[in-house]
């Protein structure tokens, strides 16, 4: 099914980008080639500010923006062109023009005429906005993936080391024994004394405490143990899926990130969401387990025994 999700994301993405660009070109959304009038106030020989009224902007682009009545930018005049610096809160279209122009916040526009304070400029031609954004995303997200993976190496090594210690000493077995009654019900396919149980408990405990750095390595260790019990390499087992359903529900006692953002934005009661998100994630966890248990019985999700023995890539699952 991950196949279909993948195809869906890529195809919907590319189609949406292309159709948005075609639509924008046909309506000339960026008003390519149309002169824009604004006011220029010089504070020095080369620098100053430009400004225009929101009313003019709205009429020019046929939009209705949410911004102050007068919109102004810092700008430098260089000969027959002007450099305009857009800000975080500048109107959307100009931000897009700047980003598509040279992938920064700077717009370099041509000065057509200037009479005293009044200036007429021509913004750079803006087209294929979404297609360019898709191209950028291809590169930046590939790099992000590698960055995330490499960033994991250190913490991963540390926690795998601790886990090995806990396994060699028999600690994991002790932990597993304590929660055995619950785990046997959720994961009936796994022998109760198997180290997979201990590793899964450690992962869930780390998630509950909001220790994301520890949770991933512990979870991956649990996956390795689960894979060692897997007779159909390359195909997910029922236990793996139930385990991941619990993980994707993200049940935690302290949603630290959300609380931190709320506090940073000046909330009077940042931790008010403790209870509500525990409720939400708790329901999600139950739903995940129940869904995994029900879906595993469906015919389309049953493991096909014919697949046995002719895997293209069954190695590397030690």
């Amino acid at each position: 099914m991950l196949n279909y999700v993948w195809i869906g994301l890529v195809l919907i993405g590319v189609l949406a980008a292309a159709s948005t660009d075609i639509y924008d070109a046909s309506t000339n959304r960026y008003r390519n080639g149309e002169p824009f009038e604004l006011q220029y106030d010089s504070t020095s020989a080369a620098g100053g500010t430009i400004s225009y009224s929101r009313e003019y902007y709205d009429k020019f682009y046929g939009v209705d923006v949410d911004s102050p009545d007068t919109i102004s930018y810092r700008a430098d005049l260089t000969g027959s062109s002007i450099n305009i610096y857009t800000e975080e809160d500048s109107p959307e279209i100009w931000k897009t023009v700047a980003k598509t122009d040279d992938n920064s916040k700077l717009i370099t526009a041509k000065v057509l005429s200037r009479h005293g304070d009044m200036m007429t400029i021509l913004l750079p031609t803006t087209s294929l906005v979404k297609t360019k954004a898709v191209l950028d995303a291809l590169i930046s997200y590939s790099e992000l993936a590698v960055k995330i993976a490499l960033g994991l190496i250190g913490v991963m090594a540390f926690w795998l080391g601790i886990m090995k210690l806990a396994e060699d000493s028999g600690m994991i077995k002790i932990i597993a024994r304590i929660l055995k009654p619950v785990m046997v019900r959720i994961f009936p396919d796994i022998p109760p004394d198997h180290p997979a149980i201990g590793a899964m408990i450690m992962n869930m405990a780390a998630n509950m405490l909001g220790l994301n750095n520890a949770a991933t390595p512990l979870g991956l260790k649990a996956m390795e143990h689960l894979e060692s019990l897997n007779p159909h390499k390359g195909t997910a087992t029922n236990s793996m899926i139930t385990f991941l359903a619990i993980n994707t529900a993200g049940l935690t006692l302290i949603p630290a990130t959300a609380i931190a953002v709320r506090a940073a934005l000046g909330s009077k009661d940042p931790t008010i969401i403790l209870m509500t998100s525990f409720f939400g994630a708790g329901l999600a966890t139950i739903a995940g387990i129940v869904a995994a248990k029900i879906l595993q019985r469906l015919k389309i999700y049953r493991i096909d025994d014919k697949l046995d023995g002719n895997q293209p890539d069954s190695g590397g699952s030690n």
């Binding site: 099914m1 390359g234 793996m240 899926i241 991941l244 359903a245 869904a291 995994a292 999700y301 069954s314």
Partner: peptide, 14 residues
Amino acid sequence: AVNVYRTRHAVAAG
């Protein structure tokens, strides 16, 4: 991490 690519009902359950 375990080279599983046939994910069966994992996406649906998640």
